[in-house]
Amino acid sequence: MSAAAKKLLNSFFDSSAFSDKSTYEQFIHPDLQVYWHSSTGYNVYDQSSYWELIESAAQSYESLRYDVSHMLSEKDEVVARYTLYVKTIENPNEEVPIGYFISIWKVQDGQLIECHQTSHPAI
């Protein structure tokens, strides 16, 4: 399953899941749990609250793009290191990095069900 899990996460990052809820729900298991250590503290999200976070970010920026530099998988888990780039509404011609991430995703039933993530701002 390790290749399938890796392909699933790559497809998630490359999809419209960050702007379209129906696409998001294709990738995200209903029992999703995201455990995130960020510069603002530790947060836990479920499927609904993670979508609200993504939706809020999507409304704040013209576009979001994930640039994955590393992806490793074993069995039903995938580790990804990536940079999140955005184009602001005020300056849609310039893409800037806003954060660096490392996340460990678990796949179950062909969907992403769990994520342990750490991040820090690029600025």
Rank of each mutant, 00 (worst) to 15 (best):
T23E: 14
T23C: 06
T23F: 01
T23S: 02
Y24V: 04
Y24K: 10
Y24M: 09
Y24A: 08
Y24S: 13
Y24L: 01
Y24T: 10
Y24R: 03
Y24I: 04
E25F: 05
E25L: 14
E25T: 01
E25C: 08
E25G: 03
Q26V: 08
Q26M: 07
Q26H: 11
Q26N: 13
F27A: 12
I28R: 06
H29V: 08
H29P: 09
H29N: 11
P30T: 09
P30A: 09
D31E: 15
D31I: 02
D31Q: 12
L32G: 01
L32V: 04
L32R: 09
Q33S: 13
Q33I: 08
Q33T: 14
Q33A: 06
Q33Y: 01
Q33C: 04
V34F: 10
V34P: 01
V34S: 09
V34Q: 10
Y35V: 05
Y35N: 15
Y35K: 10
Y35S: 10
W36C: 06
W36Q: 07
W36T: 04
W36M: 03
W36N: 10
H37D: 03
H37C: 06
H37S: 12
S38I: 01
S38N: 08
S38T: 15
S38L: 02
S39N: 10
S39Y: 11
S39K: 14
S39F: 05
S39Q: 11
T40Y: 12
T40W: 04
T40S: 09
G41H: 11
G41D: 08
Y42P: 01
Y42E: 11
Y42V: 10
Y42H: 14
N43C: 02
N43A: 09
N43G: 00
N43F: 12
V44Y: 00
V44F: 05
V44S: 07
Y45W: 12
Y45E: 11
Y45N: 05
D46W: 05
D46G: 13
D46L: 04
D46V: 05
D46N: 15
Q47K: 14
S48K: 11
S48A: 05
S48Y: 07
S48M: 02
S48E: 11
S49F: 13
S49T: 14
S49P: 13
Y50R: 00
Y50M: 06
Y50A: 11
Y50N: 09
W51V: 05
W51I: 03
W51P: 02
W51H: 07
W51A: 01
W51N: 03
E52P: 00
E52A: 15
E52D: 14
E52K: 13
E52N: 13
E52C: 00
E52Y: 05
L53P: 01
L53T: 04
L53M: 14
L53R: 07
L53I: 00
I54F: 01
I54H: 05
E55M: 08
E55F: 07
E55A: 15
